[in-house]
Amino acid sequence: MLKSVKKRLPIPVVMDMLDELNPFKVKRQRIMNFNPATSVASRKPAENSKITVFDYSGNGCTEETLVSLEEVFAYRDKPTSTWINVDGIRKDDVHAICQHYMIHPLIEEDILSIGQRAKMDDIGERLFCQLPMMYFNSEASTIDLEQVSIVMGKNFVISFQEDPTRDVFDPVREKLKIPGSRIRNGTMDFLCYSLLDVIVDSYFTVLDKLGERIELMEDLVQHYPNTRTLARINFLRRQVFLFKRGIAPVRELVNGFLKSESDLLEDNVTKYYKDVYDHIIQCNDLADNYRDMILNVQEMYHTQLNLKMNEIMKVLAVVTTLLSPLTLIAGIYGMNFHNMPELASPNGYFYTLGGMGVLLVLMILIFRKRGWF
């Protein structure tokens, strides 16, 4: 694949594409800040908040964008299945929803927390999971992420998102609109699986973008092993490490659903969670491969730098060796003694220069024959 990239893209184009990998223009990100879940005061209320509801059954599906928070409460006791998606987290809204839907305060704290590690909890009659949703920012070549929380009950699933402007749930919305689809006729655990599945699948899109940058970086290192290239390598390495650290706990999250004995999970849906588990394992393996690749690129940079330095030292050594005999002769005849051979010869100066020139040419021929340069 790298060879095909080289054939398609000339070096100037590669330089333009990688010029965005400038760590001095982008602030360093952290996927997890390891703050305790109770530190909810640091979260700022979302400026924009939107609540959308999919209320569906095998007979039909309705999609609504709610105007007021109180409209959410009517869906708790409906016989149909309901997916409530809250875009933009506000403390009062989350508290009201958790109170009405009898969600445990510990889950509420996790929803309001920032930078939580991916996790899965089974508390009471509610299943809760929290994981990062990732996007690749092509302009800055960084990984953008938001924390997504999903709460599942007997006849509802509530998802909380930080960013109201984007998500990866459109495939789920489209399937809900299709009559007779598996998700329309399925239970809430299948809807929860579908949400987890599209989130995990979106990780592969981010991985593809990172892989493209790594391949272009390999090509760049071979032609321009300079300090700017090293800065780009370090910046890209940090993005790969942050991605790996963010998705690593998702494996245990999905495994928690597989091991859970909750009545909300049906046996015939377990195989679907097993499929997500296989995908996240594959994603972790690819992330490990890309981490090794970027480390190899860093080693390649140092190798290219050493080769370049060796070539410079080789040239300097050859020049020094060629000039050493000439310097010796010039030094000898530069001594102020009266009795020196050819000192009084009228052509001694030309004889000396001619001998030095012959010696220089002879040494060059010998070095070339030995393949020293």
Rank of each mutant, 00 (worst) to 15 (best):
F73D: 01
I11S: 02
V151G: 02
L69D: 03
R251C: 00
V168K: 10
K7W: 12
R237L: 00
F128I: 07
S39R: 11
G153E: 03
I111N: 03
E71F: 10
V198M: 07
F204K: 08
V269H: 09
S324T: 10
L258G: 09
P225G: 09
R126T: 14
M335G: 02
L242C: 01
L326Y: 10
E261H: 14
I364Y: 07
L307R: 07
A248V: 08
T227N: 07
M152V: 13
D110F: 14
G124P: 06
L145G: 05
D267K: 11
D201T: 11
M133H: 07
G211D: 12
M120D: 00
H279L: 06
H338T: 10
V198Y: 08
R8L: 13
L360Y: 12
L112E: 02
G180Y: 15
S4H: 13
L9P: 01
P132I: 04
L210Y: 12
S324Q: 03
M133S: 14
L343S: 02
F24T: 13
T65H: 11
C192R: 03
C129D: 01
S49A: 09
L305T: 11
K274E: 04
R43D: 01
D201W: 12
Y75T: 06
D122N: 10
L176I: 09
F367E: 01
F243H: 06
S57M: 08
L66N: 05
